[in-house]
Amino acid sequence: MDISVVIPLYNEVESLPELTSWISRVMAENSFLYEIILIDDGSTDGSWQMINKLRLDNTFIKGIKFRRNYGKSAALNVGFDAAQGNVIITMDADLQDSPDEIPELYRRIVEEGYDLISGWKAKRYDPLSKTLPTKVFNWATRKMSGIDNLHDFNCGLKSYRKNVVKNIEVYGEMHRYIPVIAKWAGFTKIGEQVVEHRARKYGVTKFGMSRFINGLLDLMSIFFVGKFGKRPMHFFGSLGALSFCAGTICALWLVGDKLYDLANHIPVSREITAKPLFYFALVAIIIGSQMFLTGFVAELVARAAPERNKYQIEDSI
């Protein structure tokens, strides 16, 4: 099979007939063997009934229905597991992504050898309240991930080589950072393609302002897990050592200063415990010790994890 189109959806009953018809037309024009996987993320507007109706006329359509709303990341992860195509295309169900982009996204994976192509909606039809925070997050993600060639990490229109989606896990709200997840898994040939962003035709957006706070937290999580997931002591131990050493140096300086005053019969104006530096040293030592203990516990958890020795193997002979 050439292409699997994975589409997560939540209350998009109005757009589904037009979207699936458009995708089928593009596939027929390019003689692609394909499947359309629609993941209903707990819709309440009759989307699942529409999927069943559309499948009667188009056997290339497959459907998966969640019992409740789990989120876009969960829908994508399940869709990736079900996909059988050599190239997987993801897109949103609201008709803001154009299926006409599919042939070029497919070509760049197959002919140019990319692992992942991420869409870039250079011209957007979203309000400033959405586009401005998105630019900030994209900038922060580029700096933290080292993927400098992507302008829009959160674009739903992407194409993947099959072995990419079969070797990554998308959970929580990590769908925003799939290129980062892929990079940490060893798939480093990541490209970008300018794609059309269409104005929303039906319904309303399903994402509120909370997604920006969640996005920042998810970025920090994925950065930590990707870099220190198998060696947490390197992170906690380093911070603990710095804190403990800083506190110890301050404490020794206070003691040395006290002994110097006593040896030279200099009147002591204040006791050591009356100086603010004493409490700074005490807190730093305590925090340093706790960081060490946290690192040890994290190491025990990591070593007990069933995937502690699971690594990405590209080839073998």
Rank of each mutant, 00 (worst) to 15 (best):
S129F: 02
R68G: 15
N69C: 11
E101K: 04
T20F: 00
E14S: 13
A28I: 07
E29R: 07
K65P: 11
D115K: 02
I102F: 00
Y10D: 01
L33Y: 08
V6A: 03
D45H: 06
E12S: 09
T134A: 10
S118P: 01
R107D: 03
A93G: 12
L16M: 15
A82M: 13
N86R: 15
D100K: 03
Y125R: 07
D57G: 13
E12R: 06
L105H: 02
S43A: 13
N30C: 05
W120Y: 08
R55M: 01
T59R: 07
G42C: 05
N138M: 08
N11K: 12
L16S: 09
P17G: 13
G71Y: 09
L95M: 13
I36D: 04
Q96S: 14
E18P: 02
A75S: 15
E112L: 02
P103S: 03
R68Q: 15
N138K: 05
G63L: 06
K121E: 15
D100N: 02
A140E: 08
T131L: 02
I51Y: 00
T59D: 01
F32A: 08
E29F: 10
W139I: 13
I61L: 14
R108L: 08
L38F: 09
D92A: 10
E35S: 13
F80L: 14
D92P: 09
Y106V: 14
R25A: 14
K72W: 11
S31V: 01
F32W: 06
R25Y: 01
W48E: 11
R107M: 03
Y106P: 08
F60A: 12
M50I: 12
Q84M: 11
V87E: 01
A74S: 14
I39R: 01
Y114G: 03
F80V: 12
A75Y: 05
F80Y: 13
D115S: 08
N77E: 11
W139Y: 12
N69A: 13
K121T: 13
P17R: 09
W139C: 02
A28V: 07
D45F: 04
S98K: 04
G119P: 02
P103T: 06
N11L: 04
L33P: 03
L54H: 11
T90E: 10
P133M: 03
P99S: 11
D45K: 04
N11C: 08
L105W: 00
V5Q: 10
E12I: 01
